[in-house]
């Protein structure tokens, strides 16, 4: 009797985690789709879906860390485009691939660092600081390319975008590694726990000897680097760079994080949830293609899913608050 009560409690606790509800929704959607379209469960399609949402999931790792501290980063999409254009320019200039790779990552870190400094040292609200950065980074992409896509000849660094290991694209493997690393960082390192502490209460974190500014700068910098990795992947995938790479990604990334259970008020959320959130959006997009529903409906559906996922969560909160 008591043991069944115990396990009931555990099951109940499991269902109270938002990411589990989203996972169930994802599975239901996948099962439904496998009946609706014979093409859905083919290896080719699955790999395709994975590749489509891999960039969003990579960016969402950084975004989630920022959201846990109570911030937000609107510049991620533009930074993807900017670092890609910057990298393409460096490659065209004749730098060896290794230097190109490092300079892309360094530029991502610099932009992220700048975001972090604006938020902490100047004290601008993250929403505003990164809104400005979003425009600046996009503007520089346009200045670098002058509106004309830059072609980049494939080298070994193109592997990140175009390479395969067996049937799996390297970008998908990169995504899984980064999400895994993000999860470990968040749960098993002092920096990760400090991120959660800051999101819970900056004051309490300060009293506990945590340097709040450093933690925030760190998560913005990590996000900048992740954006540059996405820039790198796009260069490889498309053999070049265009100023509009990553356009609008920030909204998909925030949506993936929110659907995956990150609370915008900060301080809580499971990093693995973002993988589920990104996957749900990816599968949904795939569903519209497979079922030949006009693409415009897809835009509506994305909105419905975001609102639906967050409503479920806040209704649950309201209930437990009583």
């Amino acid at each position: 009797m008591s043991s069944s009560g115990e396990s009931n409690k555990k099951i109940k606790a499991l269902f109270e985690k938002p990411e589990i509800n989203v996972l169930i929704a994802l599975l239901v959607l996948c099962i439904g789709l496998s009946f609706a379209s014979p093409y859905f469960l083919t290896a080719k399609n699955i790999v395709n879906v994975l590749r489509q949402f891999s960039l969003i999931a990579i960016l969402a790792v950084g975004q989630a860390l920022i959201i846990v501290t109570g911030g937000i980063d609107l510049s991620v999409g533009s930074v993807v485009g900017f670092t890609a254009c910057f990298g393409a320019a460096v490659a065209r200039w004749g730098a060896p691939p290794g230097i190109t790779l490092l300079s892309i990552l360094a530029m991502g870190a610099v932009v992220g660092l700048a975001n972090g400094m604006l938020v902490t040292k100047i004290g601008i609200a993250p929403f505003i600081a990164t809104l400005g950065m979003m425009s600046i980074a996009r503007g520089f992409s346009l200045l670098i390319t002058m509106g004309v896509p830059i072609h980049v000849d494939p080298t070994w660094i193109s592997v990140f975008g175009g390479g395969y290991v067996g049937i799996f694209p390297v970008s998908v493997i990169t995504m899984l590694v980064i999400v895994g690393a993000g999860f470990v960082l968040a749960n098993n390192t002092t920096l990760g726990r400090n991120v959660y502490a800051v999101g819970n209460s900056e004051q309490a974190a300060k009293f506990s000897g945590i340097r709040v500014d450093r933690v925030k700068i760190m998560v913005f910098t990590i996000t900048g680097v992740l954006a540059s990795i996405c820039g790198l992947i796009l260069i490889g995938q498309l053999e070049g760079a265009d100023a509009f790479y990553g356009n609008g990604y920030e909204l998909d990334v925030i949506a993936a994080a929110v659907i995956g259970g990150m609370s915008l008020s900060g301080g809580e959320g499971n990093l693995l949830g973002i993988l589920v959130g990104a996957a749900l959006m990816g599968v949904l997009k795939n569903a519209f293609v497979l079922l030949a529903v006009p693409g415009y409906w897809q835009v509506v559906a994305t909105g419905v899913v975001i609102i639906g996922a967050v409503s479920l969560d806040s209704l649950r909160r309201k209930r437990t608050a009583r």
């Binding site: 400090n194 209460s201 009293f207 301080g267």
Partner: peptide, 21 residues
Amino acid sequence: KEQGMFLKLTVKDNMTMVHLK
């Protein structure tokens, strides 16, 4: 509540925050 606790974190996390390093 404001300066002491990390209300959304576990008891374990709350207890070990200073000693974490």
